[in-house]
């Protein structure tokens, strides 16, 4: 129930992604497109994603992907460009999801950093994963710590380990690492 509802709501986000970015998100190589879009789309980042009109079930890969829960341990896998994350998180917040964790993955071969958000629901077993690919040379993504205060520490931790900059974060200082740490140990090219 919750799954279908949230899937629908998240699918609407894809409607508004310009075609160029859509293919980019699908191929998970949003380098130029995302960079372009970062300038273009952020000002008009949709606050009101849940409009009246019924979204059609997306047929193409872009859109929230239902996964086999038994095999993967989560229900919905949603790859979004970074500037859409806030809108998606707002939708989840509206549906009373809670944030399990935020983390990163370093795809060094593709020169990309992935940010992964895990959400879960208290009333129903419905795990939603949001993920977003960032350019490895300039990893920036808007913060969600003003929506989920718990994200504050998770984002700081992710910044510690990967150097991903959460723009708008109130206090992006090392949390688990020493306060003068200028290295990011979970990057694959980190040498101790």
């Amino acid at each position: 129930m919750m799954l279908a509802k949230i899937k629908e709501a998240l699918a609407e986000l894809y409607e508004e992604i310009p075609a160029a970015a859509e293919t980019a998100a699908a191929e998970a190589v949003p380098e130029e497109a995302a960079a372009e879009q970062a300038d273009a789309a952020i000002p008009e980042a949709p606050e009101e994603a849940g409009t009246e009109e019924e979204a059609e079930e997306p047929v193409a890969p872009p859109g929230p992907k239902e996964t086999d829960y038994v095999a993967t341990g989560y229900h919905l896998d949603t790859a979004l460009p970074p500037e859409k994350i806030v809108a998606a998180v707002e939708i989840l917040n509206r549906e009373d999801f809670f944030l399990e964790t935020i983390t990163g993955v370093d795809w060094i071969d593709a020169q990309q950093l992935e940010v992964v958000y895990d959400f879960n629901h208290f009333d129903e077993n419905c795990r939603v994963v949001l993920r977003s690919m960032l350019d490895r040379s300039k990893p920036e993504i808007p913060t969600i710590s003003d929506i989920y205060q718990g994200a504050n520490w998770h984002e700081r931790e992710t910044h510690d380990f990967f150097g991903i900059v959460f723009t708008g974060h109130p206090n992006l200082e090392p949390l688990l690492l020493p306060e003068d740490a200028d290295f990011h140990p979970l990057l694959k090219d980190f040498k101790a």
Binding site: L99, T101, T103, V105, D106, V116, Q149, G150, W153
Partner: peptide, 25 residues
């Protein structure tokens, strides 16, 4: 949270510890 690249080591292993979130409040 495991990310596997099909080898005998993890590509990424994220451990979500409950007290981390509990203390953050």
């Amino acid at each position: 949270r495991l990310v596997s690249d099909g080898t005998n080591t993890a590509y990424r292993l994220k451990l979500r510890s409950p007290t981390y979130s509990n203390l953050s409040l």
